[in-house]
Amino acid sequence: MNNTMDNETERLDELNDRYARALLPLTITFGFFAVFGFFGNLIILLVFSLSRDYKRNNFKVFVLTLAVIDMVICVTLIPAEMVKQRKYFEFGDVVTCKVKCFFNVFGASSSCLAFLVISIDRVRKVVQPFKKQMSPAIAVRILIVVACVFPILLAVPGTIMCGIKTTNMTNIHGGNTTIHLCETEEKYEKSIWRTVYKFTFIILLVGISVTYIVLYTFVMREAAKQMKAISMQRKHSSLETVFTTGIYYQNTIVNETPVSNIVKSDNTGSYMSVGTIINNGSLSKGSLENGDLKQRESIEQIRRKNVRPQKTKHFPTKTIIWFILTIVFIVTYFTLNILTLNVGKIVNMSPSEFTLFSFFFRIYFLNHVINPIVYAMFVKRFRSSCRNVFPMLLSKLR
C-alpha cells in the first residue's frame, strides 16, 4: 500500500528539476541575452558619450536613455528570470520575487513611454520642422519624469501585490504536488485594486501603441512626400524647384538641421526655410534690397554655388531606426499581454509545452538587447566608432 502511494507521488524538488531540465536551453539563451545586452549597451554608452562624432542632440539623448534602461533590465530582470526558471515551482525567495516583479513593470513602462517621447519628437522633426522643436535639455527633463519617475511609481503597486503563491499541480503520476510560484499573492488575486491595476496597465500599453502607429503614419507619409520632392528635384536642375518643394531634412545622424536650405536670421535667431521665404513672397527683389544684408548675401551665395540639399532615395535614417525599435516593442509586449491570460494554465502544461510558452512569454527580452544590432545595421559611423571604442577609452583614461 505504501509503495503504491510512493509511486503515485512526486516530490516538489523532483517536479521542479524535471521542468528545469526542459527549460535549460531557454535559460542559457536568456543568459546570452543578458551578456550581449549588457556589453552591447555598454558600448553604446561609451561610443555616444566619449566620441566627438556625436553632437549633443535629441538622437544622442534618446539613444543614451534607451541604453541605460536596457542595461538595467539586462543586469536585473533577465538574471532574475533565469533564477526563476531554475526554481519555478519551488520559488521561496520573496525578496527576489518582488525585485523581479518591480523590474517587469518598470522595464515595460519605461521603454513604452520613452518610445512615446521619441515618436512625438519624430513628428515634430519631420512633419512640423518649422515649429518650435524639443531641445536636448528639454528632452532630458521629459525623459527623467516620463521614462524614470512615472514607471517607478507605476511599478510600486505591482511589487506590493507580488509574492509567493502556493497551489497544487498535477505531477507525472497524475497526483497533486504542492508548488510555490512567484506570482500575485492569493490575498490580492481577487482584489478590485488588482483588477484596476492590471487593466490600467493594459490600457496604457494598448493606448500608447495605437498612438505610435498613428504618429508614425504621419511621419512615413511626410517622408514619402519628401522622397517624391527629391525625385522632382533630380528631373529639374533648377535650384528654385528645390526651394519650392520644402525639402528640409538630411539623412544624417549627427546634424539635426540642414544648412543648404535654412537661413538664420540674425535679428530673431530663428531658422527659416529658403523655399518658404521665396514662396511666401517675403523675399522679393525689393525686400532683398532693403532687407538684412547678411541674409541677402547668404541666399545669393547659395544661388551662385548652386548648393542643393542632400539627396537620398531612402527614408531618414533616424526615423527608420526608431520605427523598427518601436515595432519590435509593440509586437513583443503584445505577445506578453496575450499570453498573460493563460498564465493560470501552466500547472496543466507538460515540460515541452511550458518551455514553448515561456519562450514566447519572455520574448520581450529582445526589446532590450536588439538596439546595438539596429544601430550597427543603419549607422555606419556607429560601426566605425565601435572598432575604435577601446583605443578611445584608453586615451581618455590616460
Rank of each mutant, 00 (worst) to 15 (best):
E353L: 11
S49N: 11
L113G: 01
N255K: 11
F33S: 05
H173A: 14
G269E: 07
N16Q: 02
N168L: 04
Q310F: 03
R86M: 05
R86Q: 12
C148T: 11
R362N: 14
S51Y: 02
M71F: 03
Y271M: 09
E289A: 15
Q310R: 02
T276V: 14
L143D: 14
Y333I: 06
M232T: 04
L239F: 01
R52Q: 14
P151D: 09
P351W: 11
I327E: 05
K318L: 04
P25T: 12
L42Y: 12
D6G: 01
E289K: 15
R194V: 09
S237Y: 04
K98R: 15
N337A: 03
G291R: 06
I253E: 00
C386S: 06
N171M: 11
Y248S: 15
Y249W: 15
K285E: 15
I179W: 07
V95F: 11
R11K: 14
S352Q: 12
Q128C: 11
L113P: 01
I118F: 03
V156I: 15
F359D: 01
F33L: 06
N279D: 13
D266H: 03
N255L: 09
V210G: 05
T319F: 02
A223T: 01
T268Q: 10
I78Q: 03
K84P: 00
W193A: 02
L394H: 09
F32A: 13
T29V: 07
G207Q: 12
I338L: 07
F199R: 05
Q301C: 10
I320D: 01
E185Y: 03
L66A: 05
L366M: 10
V145S: 12
V127T: 07
R141F: 06
F382E: 00
N267I: 14
H173E: 02
K396V: 01
I262R: 14
Y248L: 14
N280E: 15
K235E: 08
Q295E: 08
